[in-house]
Simulated assay, not measured.
Amino acid sequence: MRVAIAGAGNVGRSIAVELLENGHEVLLIDKEPHRIAVDELPRAEWLLADACEIASLDEAGLQRCNVAIAATGDDKANLVVSLLAKTEYGVPRVVARVNHPKNEWLFNEAWGVDVAVSTPRLMSALVEEAVSVGDLVRVLRFSQGEANLVELTLPADAPLVGTVIGAVEWPEDTALVAVLRGGRVVVPTPDDPLEGGDELLFVAAPDREQQLEDLLNAEASQSSN
């Protein structure tokens, strides 16, 4: 897979390291000469250019990339890069970094963003995930599919404890994708029973999140009976 990363600061370089270790081709683009660190990442391709300019992206051959990542520290630049990557070069997957939470609403399909990654949101979600039982925590938003990755820790007294996954009538437009149990990742099958303390990861449409929480949360479920 070929990946272009706009922004070769600490975030961009860290992403590049991970991708290179996983065997992918990486091109880093930055307009600041002091960020071009060829010696640090010799296996990456480097381009000294402004990723917000068409001429720069032509030189980068963005149309040959499978993924474009807008990872600069400037939200306006990340939006421009995302829009150009999607509309001008047809990059299949565009991931954008959100620096300021107040701008998160802009990072959507209209600006060419498939996945928006907000560090403040991720950090708050991780805190909530660590201390919340029975509450739905939004971990990640998938813009293009209009869905979110959400997590809920199943209370020990939830009515669904002991029920096999295949017998649960999940809300429409939701999918249970993984169960974290006892330090293991369990790929759910219809015959697996739910256990108290399971961390359940779902991909769900935003308008189905409350239904999902009501179904899984012991107090909400009991109060509706």
Rank of each mutant, 00 (worst) to 15 (best):
A55Q: 12
P190A: 04
V81A: 02
L79G: 12
W105S: 00
A70R: 08
I36G: 05
E21L: 14
I54G: 01
V177D: 05
K31T: 01
L79Q: 05
V11E: 07
T174N: 05
V137S: 01
L215T: 03
E128K: 15
V17L: 14
D191Y: 12
A55G: 04
L136H: 09
V185C: 11
G12A: 08
S221C: 03
G73P: 09
V67L: 12
V150I: 08
E195I: 03
G197I: 02
A178E: 04
L136P: 14
L19G: 05
A44I: 00
A110K: 15
E45H: 10
S223N: 13
V95T: 02
T87W: 10
A110R: 15
K102V: 06
N78D: 03
D50F: 09
V67A: 08
F142Y: 15
R184Q: 12
L79A: 04
V94E: 07
N108S: 13
S124Q: 12
L149C: 08
C52P: 03
P101Y: 01
A68D: 08
E88F: 14
E195M: 13
E53D: 11
R13S: 07
W170V: 01
E45Y: 10
C65D: 05
I29F: 09
G61A: 07
E18K: 11
E169A: 06
D50P: 10
P92K: 11
A51Y: 14
G196Y: 13
R208P: 01
N225L: 08
W46N: 01
D207I: 03
A218C: 03
E25I: 01
S14D: 09
T87L: 07
L84G: 03
R93H: 05
L212G: 05
K102L: 09
P92W: 06
N103Y: 11
G197Y: 02
L154F: 08
F107D: 01
A116W: 15
V38W: 11
L152A: 04
E169Y: 01
D74L: 11
F107W: 06
A68C: 14
V98A: 01
D191Q: 13
P92N: 06
D39P: 00
E146A: 11
L136D: 05
E104D: 07
T163Q: 14
D74S: 11
V38A: 06
N108M: 09
E213M: 12
L27Q: 11
L41D: 05
N225E: 07
P155V: 00
D191A: 08
A37Q: 14
V91W: 15
A96L: 05
D214Y: 04
L194N: 06
W170P: 06
L19H: 04
Q211K: 06
S223F: 09
D74M: 12
C52T: 15
E25N: 03
P120H: 13
D207V: 08
H24D: 04
A116D: 08
P33T: 00
G182D: 07
V139R: 00
L79M: 13
E151Q: 15
V11M: 09
H100Y: 11
V179K: 06
S82H: 04
I69Y: 00
L152E: 11
R138W: 01
C52M: 13
G9A: 03
N99C: 02
L216D: 06
V139F: 13
S143M: 03
K86L: 03
R141F: 02
L48Q: 08
A110V: 07
V95W: 08
M123G: 02
